[in-house]
Nucleic acid binder design. Structure first.
Length: 204
DNA sequence: CATGGGATTGACT
DNA sequence: GTCAATCCCATGC
């Protein structure tokens, strides 16, 4: 990144890697959650590398799909690669990627990304300047990427929100570890949270 | 139809 | 460290 004449601009070229398709998402949700760490999340030319995810599956009570396809949870049963976007705590928007075959309620919550592309736009939307505070939480990154409830049930495979796998980002993400999920009160013992070890942009 | 809790964040002590 | 903000939706009467 460089700053010239007061007009700060990102000079990182946009990713050229392969966009993830249906076959990537149509797998066990734990594999999808782990493999999404190191991938690239983009919307409107803004985004970065995924550094933290959590898996949710209808078989465990922390998942919204646990009680079946209720009005809120029905998106979780849609085609793999669908975006599940929902409203939390009265003010926050959280982004998930639906996984497993259609009819199975499961998704991966994107909890944090490392900001890379168009950082200036993210700073404006977040009203923050510290890099580590831009996307280090599930509601922070949706605000930074301008993702709202209108994206719920849209496609991550051919819609405006893109998920890509670059050639080398497993190297960029480094070692990935599995720990307990954050902020839930049920099934707290499951180690279904995945994050890049030592990355400064992982949530608190 | 009324009620209570939640996959969080940011401000404040 | 504590706590309020704020509203959808699942539940129960």
């Amino acid at each position: 990144m460089t700053s010239v004449g007061g007009a700060s601009q990102s000079v990182v070229p946009l990713p050229s890697g392969k966009r993830l398709g249906s076959d990537f998402y149509e797998r066990p949700v734990l594999e999808v959650a782990r493999d999404l760490v190191g991938c690239v999340l983009l919307h409107d030319g803004v985004g970065g590398m995924i550094v933290e995810t959590e898996a949710y599956h209808e078989c465990e009570p922390a998942c919204h799909a646990h009680r079946g396809p209720t009005p809120r949870a029905k998106t979780l049963f849609d085609e793999p690669g669908t975006a599940y976007v929902y409203f939390s705590y009265g003010m926050h928007v959280l982004l998930n990627a639906v996984a497993e075959p259609a009819g199975v309620g499961a998704a991966v919550l994107i909890r944090a990304i490392e900001p890379i592309w168009n950082i200036e736009s993210m700073c404006e939307r977040r009203n923050r300047t510290a890099l580590e505070d831009l996307c280090s939480g599930p509601a922070k990154l949706t605000q930074a990427l301008a993702v709202d409830l209108a994206f719920n049930s849209g496609s991550l495979i051919d819609g405006p929100i893109e998920v890509r796998r670059e050639g080398a980002e497993q190297t960029a993400a480094g070692r990935i570890t599995a720990t307990r999920r954050v902020g839930i009160s049920r099934a707290i013992e499951l180690p279904w949270r995945f994050h890049a070890v030592g990355n400064r942009h992982v949530s608190a």
